[in-house]
Write a protein that binds this DNA or RNA. Structure first.
Lengths: 234, 234
DNA sequence: AAAATATAAAATATCGATTTTATTTGGCGC
DNA sequence: GCGCCAAATAAAATCGATATTTTATATTTT
């Protein structure tokens, strides 16, 4: 019994990190939930050391919170934190987009066109199963936002954007935002407008569209019925 | 023998992290240098576990690089990486500054005035010892940039700014940039202009001044005689 | 009875040793 | 002599156990 894992996570720490991250992202582990090393160790079948190291890694990704020597817990969610998150995300994304528009070459343009096409394809051939559809949409959506700023010239900006986007995804997932097929077609339109503006090198308009897109996401999350003030002490 | 440490680092991991970070920031551990757990363990007098955990933490701060299961090394430096870093820093700093100017209250203004005053005081009463002076300048300079964006409303943006600033500081330290007293007085003028624009709520002008400030820093580092292409394999 | 304190229980942080993985060294064939 | 493969060496990743700190419980004092 050596490795029947996807082989993408070669080290136990990475595998444990992926497993825990998945549980957090999907809402199996709720915000604020205490993360005890031994429990996780038994639950996921890894030794205490990889679990511990994995948790430290998740802290830097903003999915887990470390409290001195009192251990770890799933990063809490709140309205204030969501505002915090979206403010940072908008700054990083629009800044990176502006740079990408200034520096982008043909490969960058091709990446955007390709990513947009996949969003379109998803909207037109939406999988029947809701979970599958949601997962797929998050993937193509994430890839599109990646493609937009791929030519920004700063690996740090790209990494920050990915990280902030991941945290946004968690909020969406936790609050189980459900979009109707029509709403998802609307998402396509918004992305198309964004792509067109970027490819036309209209930096100001593109950044404003992106900021507006994020404002809508924020309002959508605020408006959702999900409990957005829980801290869940345990 | 329980704790004769500064008591600020209560856990071994934190103490080890601070020690290693200090060695990296001061250039004792050169960019690209291989970081072997056992060596560090013996060198600094901590067990392997805290060292390992500390290194993982430094990776997320951008001071150390992890290579699969091949271990750790001090984050390399290069012209490309410095461009990468300064691009990210300018985006984050100007974005956060714009938010702070829009949201800042009296406390924010007071913080800027106070931080600026300390820069002025430093310039007028510069310590004789060069190392002491440099350390103190980095502190007041860092505090000033913190104060500028303190009211931006996003803890994530503040954390990013701190982190990127720290990395910039490492570049400065490594290349042993030496500023003449006159040059440091020039630094004060630049900071004063920036503070005045921010306090006058002139967002565009303030951000442009900040961006210009960063461009100058970049050129100063590029122009320095220090070896900025070393990778130091071992 | 409430607050404060001492004791017991649990969880974390750390250690030392083992296992696994990477790197070097030495030998063999071409 | 040069490149390729195997054993040996070194390093990193992981484990199981111990020490330390935190949290919960019970007791004593006012």
């Amino acid at each position: 019994m050596k490795s029947n894992l996807p082989a993408s996570e070669k080290t136990r720490t990475e595998a444990a990190g992926a497993a825990i991250a998945s549980a957090i992202m999907s809402g199996v582990l709720l915000p604020g939930h205490k993360l005890r090393i031994r429990e996780l160790s038994e639950e996921f079948g890894f030794g205490p050391t990889p679990i511990r190291e994995a948790l430290a890694g998740l802290v830097s990704r903003g999915l887990v919170e470390a409290e001195g020597q009192k251990g770890f817990r799933v990063a809490p969610v709140s309205r204030e934190d969501l505002n915090d998150l979206m403010a940072a995300r908008t700054i990083v994304e629009t800044g990176a987009l502006r740079l990408a528009i200034a520096n982008g070459d043909a490969d960058w343009e091709a990446g955007i066109v390709s990513a947009l096409h996949r969003i379109k394809h998803f909207c037109e051939h939406r999988p029947a199963d809701t979970d599958t559809a949601t997962t797929l949409f998050e993937k193509v959506n994430s890839d599109f936002h990646d493609a937009l700023i791929a030519a920004c010239g700063s690996s740090r900006l790209i990494a920050m954007q990915r990280n902030l986007f991941e945290q946004t995804r968690r909020y969406r997932s936790i609050m189980s935002i459900k979009r109707s097929p029509r709403a998802k077609m609307g998402e396509y339109d918004a992305h198309k407008e964004l792509a067109d503006l970027a490819l036309a090198r209209k930096a100001d308009a593109a950044c404003e569209a992106l900021a507006q897109h994020n404002r809508i996401t924020l309002q959508l999350l605020f408006g959702a019925e999900g409990p957005l003030k829980l801290k869940k002490p345990e």
